[in-house]
Nucleic acid binder design. Structure first.
Lengths: 140, 140
DNA sequence: TTTCATGCAAACCGTTTGCATGGTG
DNA sequence: CACCATGCAAACGGTTTGCATGAAA
């Protein structure tokens, strides 16, 4: 949280109440849609505008303070920047769990990436399938 | 291409001229947006509707005949189904290129996945950064 | 006191849907 | 000839933008 605030002020952006609350929500963790973020913000900022949220989210993304991705239904999700994520997404229940193993750190792709002159900033690995529970339910 | 047509008819879907042309475009390869697909289709199907294209794309995705992903600007891209994809997406120009190396095939995550009882269906790896050209432009 | 940020509402744009028509199996 | 698929146009919903107001530095 503190580092997020510092990142924002270091970029010459003003520290408005809205921005501080937004950073608090983001610091809380999770992949949130703009709607979900606004819902949480309204608790402390009842009149905050959706436009303000979108504008700030875009600003933060451009500065690399947070990251953004689109879920399979095409809705943007935001989260405090994690430079890499490895998710297992269950096709049965939709739950996502984070995986520890990082294929990139293992150096597996290094050769191919460097061979093509590609500079990595972040990555996101999604593995889809069925979790233990949903496998059992499917077998019934 | 032939296998795509077979997959469609096997599912009990009618083989309309629009669908056949759509499959031809998809068989041509690449990650295409609906707009790009329509532009190509108009050469042979001048009156084809955007709605028809979207409807068929969604149908094909649901049947697993093609796959869909959202680029960083939130626009859907479609391609003939690959059960796994490894993409490098340039943060500068937005272009995506496919990587050959597959971290999953290398067995890196096997231990973690099997340890948790997770059954893999497909996966998608996105690596973001800057391509050679955008690195040069950024240095200017 | 000068910007920059906010709120509101309207515009945008990719995508979906209702409905009547047309073509496939 | 029964249905599914198509085309058109309108609706939808997430996101962006113009403009006047308000607050941070």
């Amino acid at each position: 949280m503190r580092s997020l605030v510092r990142a924002v002020s270091r970029q010459g952006l003003r520290l408005t109440p809205q921005r501080i609350c937004l950073l608090e929500v983001l610091a809380g963790g999770g992949d949130l849609t703009a709607e979900e973020i606004v819902a949480r913000l309204r608790k402390t900022q009842p009149h905050i505008s959706l436009a303000t949220v979108y504008r700030n989210l875009n600003t933060f993304v451009a500065l690399g303070i947070i990251s953004k991705y689109y879920s399979p239904d095409g809705v943007a999700h935001y989260r405090a920047s994690a430079r890499h994520e490895h998710l297992f997404i269950c096709l049965g229940c939709g739950d996502a769990q984070h995986l520890a193993a990082c294929p990139l750190q293992a150096g597996l792709l290094d050769e191919e990436l460097s061979g093509r002159g590609l500079q990595v900033v972040d990555h996101r690995f999604e593995i889809r399938g069925y979790c233990r529970r949903c496998q059992k339910e499917g077998a019934k």
